[in-house]
């Protein structure tokens, strides 16, 4: 196994994903198989190769900062599960 049960739980917590016991077991097995297969990348010497994050030569595209009408508030809020007085409602973040 390329990946331990504890690692599965740690990653699930980083990703804020609830997993059942059965899912954890399956995830450990499947991710291990996938990572084993990916080990072939280590065959290639990339010490002198720069990484590619995007294929485009563009960097930091700017536009004019011109004021324009925005979306209607009610329209945006229409999809929010919980709202109050024109705001999105969330549970307390800071005690």
């Amino acid at each position: 196994m390329a990946i331990t049960r504890e690692e599965v739980e740690h990653i699930a917590e980083l990703a804020k994903l609830y997993l059942t016991e059965e899912e954890k077991e399956k995830m450990q097995r499947q991710l291990s198989a996938i990572l084993d297969y990916f080990a072939m990348l280590q065959e290639i010497d990339t010490s002198l190769i720069p990484p590619t994050a995007t294929v485009l030569p563009l960097r930091n595209v700017m536009r004019e900062d011109t004021p324009a009408p925005s979306f209607d508030r009610d329209k945006i809020l229409a999809n929010a599960p919980q709202k109050v007085e024109g705001y999105v409602k969330v549970k307390v973040v800071l005690e």
Partner: peptide, 22 residues
């Protein structure tokens, strides 16, 4: 967050989120 995401995403999406996070 955990419950919403754990119940809202299917198995392949969870697998890829896990793989990517790792």
């Amino acid at each position: 967050y955990r419950l919403t995401r754990g119940n809202g995403f299917g198995p392949e999406v969870k697998r890829r989120i896990m793989l990517g996070t790792y």
